Simulated assay, not measured.
Amino acid sequence: MPSRSTRSVDPLDDDDYPAYTMGRAAEMLGTTPGFLRALGEHRLITPLRSEGGHRRYSRYQLRIAARARELVDQGTSIEAACRIVILEDQLEEAQRINQQLRSQDSEPRPKATV
């Protein structure tokens, strides 16, 4: 799963900035607003709400939704697709942490003086 960016000065450069309306997000993904609502019901993505109560999606959320759509298009049920994407994300995070820990273990340590 693509990594999330760190916060930047311009909100539109931020992967987590909720820049896309439900209609625009569905159009970009080639799906329906109902599909995006279903992803929310299965707790794969939780859109932020505008002051008027409209759903807004970030680029990061759209990448997650696109992966779920890939799986659904291949015949996976939406519930299973959401679970797969969640597990893929957890695996990626565990691998990242594992790599960090391995990097720390391979750093030379100062020798103790007696």
Results as ranks from 00 to 15, higher is better:
Ile45Leu: 02
Ile84Leu: 01
Ile78His: 00
Pro18Thr: 00
Glu70Pro: 06
Pro47Val: 11
Ile45Phe: 02
Lys111Tyr: 10
Arg24Phe: 11
Thr21Asp: 14
Gln90Val: 01
Thr31Met: 08
Arg24Gly: 03
Met1Ile: 10
Ser103Gln: 15
Leu44Cys: 05
Cys82Ile: 01
Gln99Ala: 11
Ala66Leu: 05
Ile78Trp: 01
Ala25Met: 14
Asp73Tyr: 02
Gly53Tyr: 03
His42Arg: 09
Ile64Trp: 03
Ala81Gln: 04
Pro18Ser: 02
Pro110Arg: 12
Arg96Ala: 13
Gly75Phe: 06
Gln61Glu: 12
Ile78Cys: 06
Arg43His: 12
Gly52Val: 04
Ile45Gln: 04
Leu36Gln: 03
Arg67Gly: 03
Tyr17Asn: 11
Ile86His: 01
Met22Arg: 05
Gly52Ser: 08
Thr113Pro: 02
Pro2Phe: 10
Ala65Met: 07
Met1Gly: 13
Glu41Tyr: 06
Ala65Glu: 04
Leu87Asp: 14
Tyr57Gln: 05
Ser103Lys: 15
Asn98Val: 06
Gly40Thr: 10
Met28Ala: 13
Ala94Gly: 13
Ile78Pro: 05
Gly75Ile: 05
Val9Ile: 14
Cys82Lys: 00
Ala80Asn: 08
Leu44Ile: 04
Glu51Pro: 01
Arg96Gly: 09
Arg109Gly: 09
Ile84Glu: 00
Tyr20Lys: 07
Ser3Cys: 02
Arg43Lys: 12
Arg109Val: 13
Thr6Ile: 00
Lys111Ala: 13
Arg59Phe: 00
Val9Arg: 12
Lys111Asn: 06
Gln99Asp: 09
Arg67Cys: 00
Ser103Glu: 15
Lys111Leu: 13
Pro110Val: 12
Arg96His: 11
Leu48Thr: 07
Tyr57Met: 01
Leu91Cys: 06
Leu36Phe: 12
Ser5Ile: 14
Arg7Tyr: 08
Asp15Met: 09
Arg109Phe: 07
Val114Lys: 10
Ala65Ser: 08
Val72Leu: 01
Pro110Tyr: 08
Asp89Tyr: 04
Leu71Glu: 03
Tyr60Ser: 14
Arg7Ile: 10
Ala26Pro: 13
Ala25Arg: 12
Leu48Glu: 07
Glu93Phe: 00
Thr32Leu: 05
Gly40Pro: 03
Arg102Phe: 12
Ser8Ala: 11
Ala81Trp: 02
Asp16Trp: 06
Thr31Trp: 03
Glu70Leu: 08
Ala38Glu: 01
Ala80Gln: 12
Leu29Ala: 04
Glu88Arg: 04
Ser5Asn: 15
Arg49Leu: 13
Glu41Ile: 06
Glu93Asn: 01
Pro33His: 04
Met1Asn: 08
Glu41Trp: 01
Ser3Tyr: 01
Ile78Leu: 15
Asn98Tyr: 08
Leu91His: 12
Tyr57Asp: 05
Ala65Ile: 02
Asp10Thr: 03
Asp10Phe: 06
Gly53Trp: 02
Gln90Ile: 05
Tyr20Cys: 09
Arg69Thr: 11
Asp89Lys: 10
Val114Gln: 09
Leu91Val: 14
Leu44Trp: 05
Leu39Met: 01
Leu39Glu: 02
Thr31Tyr: 03
Thr113Lys: 07
Leu87Thr: 06
